[in-house]
Amino acid sequence: MNIFRLAGDMTHLFSVLVLLLKIHTIKSCAGVSLKTQELYALVFAARYLDIFTNYISLYNTVMKLIFLGSSFSIVWYMRYHKIVRRSYDKDQDTFRHYFLILPCLLLALLINEKFTFKEVMWTFSLYLEAVAILPQLVLLQRTRNIDNLTGQYVFLLGAYRALYILNWVYRYFTEPHFVHWITWVSGLVQTLLYADFFYYYFQSWKNNQKLHLPA
């Protein structure tokens, strides 16, 4: 464990807590994409298949349970909670996220480190996570007013993977033959997808204005 990875995990934890807090306290999911939340639930389900069979550490298991629990409960809130679901903007959240799942699955079947069920599912979760934010970014472009919590959620979600990239650089230089191209490339693509959001987020922060993305 290095500082970059710990910072990345904490940033990721904060992003899901910010979102859960928003939905649970103000009972609203305005501006939040259900599609992205469903993709993330799928990412964690595919990645943490061995949560009970491959014990690594208490920290690792607890964090996996938190990520699984939070992502599925956010999906539950947005789909079934009678108050929260009313604030879900399904007419705007129209990204066909099923078109993301299949290509990622096919790619995982073609490009992976080992052709086993667990490894292919793990690789699938990497590719899917890289594109899971797209429905949310599209929704932000459409809904003019981006409330602070949603903006912070997306920012933290992007920052966590950027910190993971620093973690991979650190591990590359400190651990012998630590080479994982698949993870590095998908992590880089994921972070680059946030590039323009980061730019506008920083601009709004610098000029102390409300965050708005150009149409």
Partner: peptide, 10 residues
């Protein structure tokens, strides 16, 4: 085992 090295990440 290199494979497990990466799997300790979240």
């Amino acid at each position: 085992k290199e494979e497990s090295v990466l799997k300790d990440e979240l």
